[in-house]
């Protein structure tokens, strides 16, 4: 439809203004609302898993606590910090876009990708450890650890496996969102380098930023819920 631009808008309109909008402001407000509604759908998407988590955590609390204790909290805390820092660099990237500092924008985007990749690397290491320990749900699953402070408590295998089923589903879905986020950021780097953005138009930077912060918020809840059920 791009060839019909001229018929609808005056010839001097912004090159990124699409045919069915009147002004850049309307286009920007529209994209922003779209992104926020998309994040609402994401909340409900993760919400289904939070519901499953909540039900079984209440039902099988001790087994969930024992299973939670078996994941390396140090790596989890480290990863939380890495992701928070990446959220900070993303916020800085958007700030650079607002101020028109294109080179700095690329630098902060690359840092965000670096921290995001570091998070995924640590996550892969954690998954590998769980695989070695036979804590991946399936035929090889076996959970021999004890609940801290309760050496006589016999941990139910099925209930411990339930924890790991939910753990892998939630962190896996979260990691998938991170991978998509990294892809989107690679696009932003290329688009910025090609001079697509200016102080008048940086909507994709802003919206992908919102997406990245959302992924961060999900992890902010996943960390205490999965790693810190009981560490006393």
């Amino acid at each position: 439809m791009s060839d019909s631009h001229a018929a609808v808008h005056s010839p001097d309109h912004h090159p990124e203004l699409r045919h069915h909008f009147m002004t850049m402001e309307q286009q920007q407000n529209t994209a922003s609302l779209g992104m926020w509604l998309f994040l609402v759908t994401e909340v409900m998407f993760f919400g289904g898993m939070f519901c499953a988590y909540l039900v079984y955590r209440l039902k099988y609390f001790n087994d969930f606590a024992a299973a939670s204790q078996s994941i390396a909290v140090g790596w989890g805390a480290f990863n939380t910090a890495v992701l928070l820092v990446s959220s900070w660099t993303m916020a800085m990237a958007v700030r650079c876009a607002q101020l028109g500092k294109q080179k700095l924008l690329i630098v902060f985007l690359l840092f965000t990708m670096l921290f995001g990749s570091a998070f995924l690397g640590v996550k892969a290491k954690e998954y590998h450890d769980k695989f070695v320990e036979h804590h991946v749900p399936g035929a090889d699953f076996s959970f021999t650890e004890k609940l801290l402070g309760h050496p006589d408590y016999v941990v139910n295998q099925y209930h411990a496996q339930m924890f790991f089923s939910i753990y892998f589903a939630m962190t896996g879905m979260h990691a998938l969102h991170m991978v998509i986020g990294l892809g989107l950021m690679a696009y932003l780097v290329v688009a910025t380098a090609r001079g697509k953005f200016s102080t008048a138009y940086y909507t994709p930077v802003e919206n992908i930023g919102l997406y990245w912060h959302f992924v961060d918020v999900v992890w902010i809840y996943l960390f205490p819920l999965l790693y810190l059920i009981s560490r006393k």
Partner: peptide, 25 residues
């Protein structure tokens, strides 16, 4: 559509994962 459909989406994902990997949820 926006508030409800994502819940069936994740439910079907869990169903498929359960079917393939025997998660047990």
């Amino acid at each position: 559509m926006v508030l409800g459909t994502p819940v069936i989406a994740i439910t079907l994902v869990l169903l498929v994962l359960e079917r393939v990997f025997h998660l047990g949820i």
